[in-house]
């Protein structure tokens, strides 16, 4: 991670979150209602600013997300969403503790309209967090969740602004009104960019499905070619949000890693997608020639950003897709650096890209260690999981200068990272991809 640029964007984030507090400090102080009251107000304002910046975090601004990898930004968006809910909830709790009579304001029938707006805003925010954290528990499909998430998030911010406007505390003077109007306009501008401008840009750069190939292990490789434009330039290992068949305005996109080399002719790109949900199970029935839209590339999981004398890849399940992109690119470039791949799968007959990996071994200095959870009787290779012993047995003596790329289920990634650290591989040389974004 380029530390200088990362520090700059963290400072920008904190500046945006804390800006309302600083600006309000510079203005006239409203009549004193006590220390707890002011802490409560400050938490409410900062919480609202955090809510606004949440829209910026997922707006996929390349320059701001590149130093971290956009997967990390989405994870931060998720966790800081929980934190901001606690900050916002502290606002009414402190007001009520300070003055229990204010509890009556929460009654939506008897209380003033601006207090009801505040209560509904908080309920919308609670709904956003619950639906996101427990989406799979509730069996909520990805696409309806995204629409619900967007509507509730906009409602939470809009109603919070109505609440501030109505309460008139730190919002009465013309310049304070200006601050909150500028904030509201900024949120509207980001939402317009995400929901209107970017989909419109994607609409102007369509792709066509030119190939669908069934792979081992309930996976499909989908090949796309740009329709009337030159396509996109990506780094091996990156990913994109893919819309198939529908319109980019309909929020039906899903994130997938490229599995192809960026050196393919005619701007061709390929995604390898495992059947895991409603959308992925329908991939096989997509007709050739169908329209597709590709929002990308994103992500920092790429050998191109980490020059090294050799690389180690650790893949589990469909985590092999971005690794294939990197291996194919290295092969297309005629790279002869030593490469080592650990690839864990449940069964040999279902292992995605088994044959493609064997073919790459003739073009690369590539050693492959297959690790099978349920090996056939005749299997002589590694069995079970990728353990510390398996890594230690196969990692080369000169492991220190190599960079390691780990991609698989989150639990596997965490275990591998711990094991690599235990084996003396510096964490700065271990790179992983978080692909369970929701």
């Amino acid at each position: 991670m380029p530390l200088g640029r990362a520090a700059f964007w963290i400072a920008v984030y904190l500046g945006l979150v804390l800006a309302p507090l600083v600006v309000l400090l510079l203005g006239p102080t409203p009549p004193g209602l006590g220390f707890r009251w002011d802490v409560s107000m400050a938490l409410g304002f900062a919480g609202l600013a955090m809510m606004g910046v949440q829209f910026v975090l997922t707006a996929r601004f390349r320059r701001a997300t590149a130093p971290f990898g956009i997967d990390l930004i989405y994870y931060f968006h998720r966790y800081v969403g929980i934190v901001l809910l606690l900050v916002v909830m502290a606002h009414p709790v402190l007001v009520i503790v300070d003055n229990p009579a204010t509890l009556g304001f929460l009654n939506p029938v008897a209380g003033p309209w601006h207090m009801s707006a505040g209560v509904i805003s908080l309920l919308a925010l609670i709904g956003v967090v619950i639906a996101s954290v427990w989406r799979r528990t509730f069996g909520l499909a990805y696409e309806p969740w995204r629409v619900t998430h967007a509507i509730l998030a906009v409602a939470a911010v809009g109603l919070a602004l109505v609440h501030i406007e109505g309460v008139q505390y730190y919002a009465a003077s013309p310049w304070q009104r200006l601050l909150w109007r500028a904030f509201a306009l900024s949120v509207v501008a980001v939402v317009c960019y995400v929901r209107v401008i970017r989909p419109w840009q994607l609409l102007r750069r369509p792709y066509r499905v030119t190939g669908i190939v069934r792979e081992r292990g309930d996976a499909w490789t989908l090949t796309l070619e740009p329709d009337g434009h030159r396509g996109l330039s990506f780094l091996p290992g990156q990913f994109a949000w893919l819309t198939l068949g529908g319109s980019p305005f309909l929020m039906q996109e899903h994130p997938f890693s490229f599995s192809s080399s960026p050196l393919q002719p005619r701007g061709r790109v390929a995604f390898t997608i495992k059947e895991l949900g409603d959308f992925t199970r329908a991939i096989g029935s997509v007709p050739r020639g169908a329209a597709a839209f590709v929002d990308g590339p994103y992500g920092a999981f790429t050998t191109d950003r980490h020059p090294a004398p050799g690389y180690v890849f650790v893949a589990g399940g469909i985590g092999i897709a971005p690794v294939m992109s990197m291996l194919r690119t290295l092969a297309d470039r005629g790279d002869r650096r030593p490469l080592l791949l650990f690839y864990a799968y449940r069964r040999w007959d279902r292992m995605t890209f088994r044959e493609a990996i064997a073919a790459l071994q003739s073009r690369l200095d590539l050693t492959v260690v297959f690790v099978l959870e349920e090996p056939p009787e005749s299997w002589n290779g590694e069995r079970g999981w990728i353990t510390r012993e398996v890594l230690d047995r196969h990692l080369p003596e000169d492991r220190l200068p190599r960079h390691v790329f780990v991609c698989g289920p989150e639990a596997m990634t965490q275990v591998i990272e711990r094991q690599l650290r235990g084996l003396g591989v510096p964490l700065s040389q271990v790179h992983s991809e978080l692909f369970e974004l929701v």
Binding site: F35, D38, V39, A42, F76, S432
Partner: peptide
């Protein structure tokens, strides 16, 4: 590691916001 990093930075952000909210109130009330 990246997942833990996201969690730590999110919690640290929350801590900083609470700290500055307290500072805000202290400055406002002299």
């Amino acid at each position: 590691m990246r997942c833990a990093l996201a969690q730590v930075v999110a919690v640290a952000t929350g801590g900083l916001v609470v700290l500055l909210a307290v500072l805000f109130a202290l400055v406002q009330r002299g």
